[in-house]
Design a protein around this nucleic acid. Sequence first.
RNA 1: GCGGGUAUGGCGGAAUUGGCAGACGCGCAGGAUUUAGGAUCCUGUGCCUUUCGGUGUGUGGGUUCGACCCCCACUACCCGCACCA
Length: 801
Amino acid sequence: MKYDYTAIEKKWQKIWAKKNAFAASDDYTKPKYYALVEFPYPSGQGLHVGHPRPYTALDIVARKRRFQGYNVLFPMGWDAFGLPTENYAIKNHIHPEIVTKNNVERFKKQIQSLGLSFDWNREINTTDPNYYKWTQWIFLQLFKKGLAYKKEMAVNWCTGCKVVLANEEVVGGVCERCGSEVIRKVKSQWMLKITEYAQRLLDDLDTVDYIDRVKVSQRNWIGRSTGAQVDFSTTAGDKLTIFTTRPDTLFGATYMVVSPEHPYIEKWADKITNLEEVRAYQEASAKKSDFERTELAKDKTGVVLEGVQAVNPVNGKEIPIFISDYVLMSYGTGAIMAVPGHDTRDWEFAKKFHLPIIEVVKGGDVEQEAFTDCETGILVNSGFLDGLSVEEAKKKIITWLEEKGLGTPKVNYKLRDWVFSRQRYWGEPIPLIYCEKCGWVPLDESELPLRLPEVENYEPTGDGESPLAAMESWVNVKCPHCGGPARRETDTMPQWAGSSWYFLRYCDPHNDKEIASKEALEYWTPVDWYNGGMEHTTLHLLYSRFWHKFLYDIGVVPTPEPYAKRTSHGMILGENGEKMSKSRGNVVNPDEIVRDYGADTLRLYEMFIGDFEKAAPWNQNSVRGCKRFLERIYGLTEILTPGNGYSKELEGPFHRTIKKVSEDIESLKFNTAIAAMMALLNDIIAIGKITQGELRTLLVLLNPFAPHITEELWEQCNFGGMLFEQSWPAYDEEKCKEEQVEIVVQICGKVRGRMTIAADSDEQALLAAAKGIPEIQPYLAGKTIIKEIAVKGKLVNLVVK
RNA sequence: GCGGGUAUGGCGGAAUUGGCAGACGCGCAGGAUUUAGGAUCCUGUGCCUUUCGGUGUGUGGGUUCGACCCCCACUACCCGCACCA
């Protein structure tokens, strides 16, 4: 009988859909399991072979959990707002809503052809007004709690897309999407105060089960550092406050630097005698793009402020103040004390401007390079700190500063507030109204969703205003507060908004009273296992943790963290080992694989391709290998024999395979789980027969990986009921053990012989048996055994002389 | 520069309280079957060597009876961040 995968896969997909086989139940008394994969952006290119890798992995987990008796929630949806759709709409004069609808249809069809056990009753779409109503609602709560604010600020302006980008969307100084140069431009933007949650986002990483590299990335991104804030008095009669992580080096501060945007420059304008030069420098750095700033990173520039000096609080010495763009306004206080002896950047600057370098921590040669080691150095030239270690000196100087009222301990974070506005059409409208009298007034919740208006033209205006701004009838409204004339906010939300809470909506997707019912959230959250790309670690993953914590604070969700466990998959590369892309011509289309080999083969191959967490190149021949495996499974019906138990020869292999597959699924080792099943199949074929009981077990084990073929064989063999309704097979630890094992006999660590012996033989028995085997006799003749090592079940090593 | 990761046959990859390196699959070689094979089945397959044997997990050291695995010092490649005071 031929393995007609096309017919089999269509048949079972239809049956599962009809039976609603994978719907999560609303019976909240059962144990639950919430498995989640990142919902895709439905791009115009259709599904990519990269998509099925994580989807299949968690589908395997979901299917295994159902067999284990859990009520499983495994949902799918569409993160459909975003620039590519909008750009496509502009280019082809099709409404983005239509573009989205078409793309979603295609994606859904493709995903469904893979036999993934998603609960399609809970499908969501971020562009659906019934969905974004709640995205807007959450924004209003943030606004009401003071966590959304508008700020004039230098933003990343993409010269290609004519749109403001988040810091995270700028890669290497250019636009992540179009590659155009990004420059700095001052605009009024909505911001979300994620920084207010920095410490909790950091601390609570200890409470969740994320793979290490995700935790490390988030910690680095949040970038906590501890130090001190210190006030330097100036000859202008005021105080300049700086942040430093090395207060111990205060005696080595020989000059100060403020950022070109620092407000004190205005304040001191009438005292600065070289104001023209300073202004010129300010302008020059304002014009620099981020790219230029990083390009020129090595070459320090700056201008001294003539007419104003600072006073080092520890020794009363007057020191010069510079402006330089190596000091960023966005971190700390926008001003630093420069300690060229012990900071590489300050050292470079000091060398260039011939400023004094004082050694205050002994251990290096500060004339050659900055000595930045905090572990070994001893303080020198530092008055009352002399002789102390760096750690001791830090404590002592902070105490001293506090006593004198000159400084305080201080914690700083690299994490910055989230730029939340976009001057684009295809996003959630921000539900706020600006009134001259009342300021920013939130829309009443009863007015939600605030729908996107129909417009003729979605094109960005290029002057930084959203296309919505041109819609006079939509923009001009009455103030909800005073009834006077007012205007709507015309910016929309970034793509990250809808994905920051979507996992909550799956719990109760049709609720029109709240984001999800209390009961549903209480039961389903947190997500038990969330898998997604590493590229979302510092964006989506951090943003959604922030929103979740906020929702927890206002009593909407019952848990402080959204995801109990987070894993991440590697990319699938082209056959040439490069990233798949149209321009490289190495893209593999999943539809063709499904057509030529079947969905089960595609699933199996993507799980077998290599370590799930690492990138792996596609290999068409290996796809064939997986197909061969399934064909041989299909052929097992021809050697099927009656009997419910395991045959004597296969009992051990079956128990071992059940154990291996059960454990490997939990630790993302899908490749070795499949290898174990392949090895078992080789054993079965070598023996030449399989009992009904054995085949039942094998089909259940393989079902999460290859659901269609296994369900088909289950039916063909009349095993009763549907395969997806069965239980996960159990194994007996005792029966996993081999009775006889082969023991290696080594002489001086080299394998010289082997013996087969009862697996439970103890060390004495092993040694006695080993000494008797003929192969090693030549190596023992005329020698003395000086050491004997025996390891149960493994080997014997005799050291001779 | 900083942070993270990786390095094992022709290829993808297995192997952990330190104990037979190369499971499983691909490819390749030989054979069977076939009108035919890019189908199927069987056998073999790290490298060197006719054999005996030797040798082998990026490089150089070390610890150990024994190291892909632990320690020290390097090299190469990949990813992320990047003047964060």
